[in-house]
Simulated assay, not measured.
Amino acid sequence: MKLLLKLYRSLPRHDSNAACAVTIGNFDGVHRGHRAILQHVVQAAASRQLCPAIVTFGPHPRAFFAQRGQRPELIPTQISSLRDKACSLSEVGIKQMMLMRFNQKLADMSAEDFIQRLLIAGLNTKWLLVGDDFRFGHKRGGDLTLLRQAGLEHGFEVHTLADIVDSHGTRISSSEVRTALAVGNLARARDLLGHTYRLSGHVIHGQKLGRTIGYPTLNLRVPALCAARSGVYVVRVHGLADQPLNGVASLGVRPTVTEAGRLLLEVHLFDCRVDAYGKLIRVEFLEYLRDEEKFPDLPTMIAAIDQDARSARDYFARHGLSQNA
């Protein structure tokens, strides 16, 4: 989870005027389609001695307009945290990430100002990659034609890339990943992402109920609108040992033991005790076991956890991973 990119929250950049190869998007999940785009940016930057960079937004523009229109049901769920997104971008080779706050001011910015302030003054853009249907600026007034005109005037190339599709010809998109995660289809999510679904975070203190019932847990905060279905999962944990550690995890609001309603990921590791508080770990989701439930009492809950642990151990035995190898 080593981060090799610089994150900027405003433009122009306070410590750089490097000329950039740029692409623009939300990049939630950094799936296979995103990676194809990003690899083009990295390759173009390398061949032109430019800095590979992206412009992204927080919150998601759809979330901003949904909140403004009082339509919370239209807010997209979140596949990855900012940390996970930045790590994935860094892995591909992106060196600079511009996280622009999407607010009314940005929504009202004209397409011409978008080009001048963000692309030219902000990033010294010399090469730009966008989709064929890319629209930007106030009321989506800017399009590819305007970008190309600006490129001729200000000296930057504009390129496009066709949608990346899966083996069935379906466009690979963040929406497709969200749909797969919402129903617990981790195999489909893995096909779209190019890797198993994962979340990272620092281990925090919980209520410590788990240790009293024989199931101590590592607790992680996750995005409030996490795209993954609430429930119980077979997982592996990276960052605590030389090899990943096997376990079982519950993602949800713990309805049996609390009414707080805060989404939490609780991970129980098999056959090991580690001091993990404060450490940054990555949890890899391997298989969905069952939905989150509210049990009538603690003994019923413990019996269900016992079965979850057996199911997870069976998974690792079937896949030859039972020794945390």
Rank of each mutant, 00 (worst) to 15 (best):
R148T: 05
R148M: 13
Q149M: 07
Q149C: 04
Q149N: 07
Q149Y: 06
A150M: 05
A150Y: 06
A150W: 09
G151F: 13
G151N: 09
G151Q: 12
G151S: 11
G151L: 11
G151M: 09
G151W: 13
G151K: 10
G151E: 09
L152S: 07
L152N: 10
L152F: 04
E153Y: 03
E153M: 12
E153L: 14
E153C: 08
H154C: 04
H154A: 12
H154N: 10
H154R: 06
H154P: 00
G155E: 06
G155Y: 06
G155H: 07
G155W: 04
F156R: 07
F156W: 11
F156V: 08
F156P: 08
E157D: 15
E157N: 07
E157V: 12
V158N: 00
V158A: 02
V158P: 00
V158L: 01
H159D: 13
H159G: 01
H159T: 07
H159L: 10
T160R: 09
T160P: 08
T160D: 06
L161I: 06
L161S: 06
L161W: 02
A162E: 09
A162F: 02
A162P: 02
A162M: 04
D163P: 15
D163S: 12
D163Y: 08
D163Q: 08
D163F: 11
I164K: 03
I164C: 10
I164L: 06
V165D: 00
V165H: 09
V165W: 00
D166E: 07
D166K: 05
D166R: 06
S167W: 02
S167H: 13
H168F: 11
H168T: 08
G169T: 00
G169A: 00
T170A: 14
T170N: 15
R171S: 14
I172D: 09
I172M: 15
I172G: 08
I172F: 09
I172K: 08
S173C: 03
S173V: 02
S173Y: 02
S174R: 06
S174C: 04
S174F: 04
S174P: 04
S175H: 09
E176L: 11
E176H: 07
V177K: 14
V177W: 14
V177D: 12
R178T: 05
R178G: 09
R178E: 05
R178W: 08
R178C: 08
R178K: 07
T179E: 15
T179R: 15
T179P: 01
T179A: 15
T179N: 14
A180Q: 11
A180H: 12
A180C: 13
A180L: 12
L181E: 02
L181D: 02
L181S: 04
L181Y: 07
A182H: 01
A182K: 05
A182M: 01
V183I: 14
V183A: 07
G184Y: 12
G184C: 11
G184S: 10
G184W: 13
L186V: 10
L186N: 11
L186Q: 09
L186H: 10
L186E: 07
L186T: 07
L186Y: 13
A187G: 02
A187K: 11
A187P: 00
A187T: 05
R188E: 14
R188L: 15
R188C: 13
R188T: 13
R188K: 14
R188Q: 15
A189H: 01
A189C: 00
A189N: 01
A189R: 01
